[in-house]
């Protein structure tokens, strides 16, 4: 018969795990020339939470997608303040892929991110503020609606406000409606802003159009 039963584990290719798995060894392998070795080192470093800084530093330079994903998976597993502090500066990277990966990782770390949220939302760079709102969009944090409402009350950038409005469509309550109503007026009644505000108010009130 063509179907054969075999033990599930296959001898196959080596996975480089014969190399030392101690902290120092793994940190060294994180800089190895082979992407496979770097990836396995990144995954196994989850056992050493104090390596967050080195992992973030590697992430900034790493060009291999599977290695970056492994680094992010480990960073999310480790979590906590050191990881958030290491990741936040990468939101300013020129590399769109890296920025968006960092946004997703930060979304997975609500407790560690929230203490920084106020500051992030007041950053001088509007793009950075938008990324912060993207982080906030997926946080299960009870403060989220209040933070977003404050953004649409004070922020002078139309795209920052539009991003906040988009998230409010999901998390906003009736108390947000008056602020929303006043928003297009702050931007010359821009048609995009008008549309977003109307759509969001409909969502919040739950009335059919």
């Amino acid at each position: 018969m063509s179907l054969v039963k075999k033990n599930h584990a296959s001898s196959g290719n080596a996975d480089h795990r014969h190399l030392p798995r101690d902290r120092a060894g793994l940190l060294r392998q994180l800089q190895d020339a082979s992407p496979d070795i770097r990836r396995w080192a990144a995954l196994d470093l989850a056992a050493f939470p104090d390596t967050a800084e080195a992992l973030c530093a590697r992430l900034e330079q790493e060009t291999g997608l599977p290695v970056r994903e492994a680094l992010l998976t480990t960073l999310i597993k480790i979590g906590g303040n050191a990881v958030v502090k290491g990741l936040m500066p990468l939101l300013r990277s020129e590399d769109a892929t890296l920025r968006n990966e960092v946004i997703e990782a930060l979304q997975q770390l609500p407790e560690a991110v929230s203490p920084y949220m106020e500051t992030m939302l007041r950053d001088p760079d509007p793009d950075y503020r938008i990324f912060s709102i993207n982080v906030l969009a997926n946080l299960r944090h009870p403060q989220a609606p209040a933070w977003l409402q404050a953004v649409i009350e004070r922020d002078a950038d139309i795209n920052v406000c539009a991003s906040a409005v988009d998230v409010l469509a999901e998390v906003g309550g009736p108390e947000t409606v008056p602020v929303l109503t006043g928003l297009p007026g702050r931007f010359d009644n821009d048609p995009f802003m008008q549309f977003c505000v109307q759509a969001t108010i409909r969502r919040i009130q739950g009335h059919d159009a």
């Binding site: 179907l3 054969v4 039963k5 075999k6 033990n7 599930h8 584990a9």
Partner: peptide, 25 residues
């Protein structure tokens, strides 16, 4: 019986990376 003997059943938690290490290739 032929079919029963052609499939290997094993227990694994897919989110446990160390358990999953045995599954390759």
């Amino acid at each position: 019986d032929d079919l029963r003997h052609s499939v290997e059943f094993t227990q694994v938690n897919i989110t446990d990376l160390s358990q999953m290490r045995g599954y390759r290739d």
